[in-house]
């Protein structure tokens, strides 16, 4: 009960902080439009890269363009949602360095909520729109044998994927408390992760796939659910129910990330900056 109250309080604080940043962002309308468009193009060019590949080949590791587009759309949409929700966490290190992190610590609300809502910006919707458009096209173009479970799995996949990426952002923020200057490391897991998931798992080495399935379970963002939807063999021959395990994996990731964050914050407060 107390735990639930804390979560609700945290969400309220998040809304307050994010709302302030949205209003701040609106004071530079021209810049807002330019960067919204920029975000759209920026992520879009990744897909242009894939289209260029498919201008030269008919399939990649046995996957057709619509199938790869499905992976791409799911990965980018999930990541886009996470990036919208917690995209400024990679800048925690600079907040710690310039001392403004201390300002967050003297406010009567959750620090995690404040860090999550920090520099919240609607221009990040560009990525979601672009990923969603590609996913939409893929759903039409790919040869999918629709069932009720597949239709239900789709939103579940996107939300769970976003939550898994949020957990990665939170863990990355916790890491920055120890190593503010090494903030770039987490790009390997966030941006690197979403890039990797755009391609079929069969492309990558077995050990790499094992790593992103069992160690950092990014495979549950889209690879495993997509295998079910598209009727393809599961990576690493996982059992059939694994496609529906994404919410559980996401919950587990959140628990671990929360633990990491708490540990990091405690160490900040006992070590200082």
């Amino acid at each position: 009960m107390a735990e639930r109250g804390a979560v609700l309080e945290g969400l309220r604080a998040y809304r307050l902080i994010a709302g302030m940043w949205v209003r701040s962002g609106m004071t530079y309308r021209a810049s807002f439009v330019v960067t919204l468009f920029g975000n759209l193009v920026m992520t879009g060019l990744d897909f242009v890269g894939i289209l260029l590949m498919f201008s030269q080949v008919d399939s990649l590791a046995g996957w057709s363009l619509p199938e790869v587009a499905f992976l791409y759309g799911a990965s980018v949409t999930s990541f886009g949602l996470a990036h919208l929700a917690a995209g400024s966490m990679p800048q925690l290190g600079s907040r710690i360095r310039d001392g403004s992190f201390d300002v967050l610590l003297v406010r009567p609300v959750s620090v995690l909520a404040q860090v999550g809502g920090d520099r919240f910006s609607l221009r990040r919707l560009g990525r979601i729109a672009q990923g969603g458009a590609v996913l939409g096209w893929a759903l039409v173009a790919a040869d999918i044998d629709w069932t009720v479970s597949k239709a239900l799995l789709l939103p579940l996949m996107l939300v769970s994927g976003a939550v898994i990426f949020v957990a990665v952002f939170v863990a990355g923020a916790a890491f920055q408390i120890y190593a503010q200057d090494a903030a770039e490391v987490q790009n390997a897991f966030t941006y690197g992760g979403t890039t990797m998931l755009q391609y079929p798992p069969a492309v990558f080495g077995k050990d790499l796939v094992r790593g992103v399935t069992f160690v950092l379970p990014l495979a549950f963002v889209n690879w495993v659910p997509a295998a079910h939807v598209l009727g393809r063999p599961y990576p690493l021959a996982l059992p059939g129910w694994a496609a529906f395990a994404s919410p559980l994996v996401a919950a587990g990731c959140c628990a671990l990330a929360g633990l990491a964050w708490r540990t990091g914050l405690r160490s900040y407060r006992s070590v200082g900056s």
């Binding site: 209003r23 701040s24 004071t27 003297v106 009567p108």
Partner: peptide, 27 residues
């Protein structure tokens, strides 16, 4: 009890502001 204390103290850091840079003061 950081958050409980926060309700009872006020802090001003001379070099850092708690105010929103781009918004009117009242916000």
């Amino acid at each position: 009890e950081r958050t409980r204390l926060a309700h009872r103290i006020g802090v001003v850091f001379g070099q850092r502001t708690t105010l929103w840079w781009d918004l009117p003061l009242i916000d």
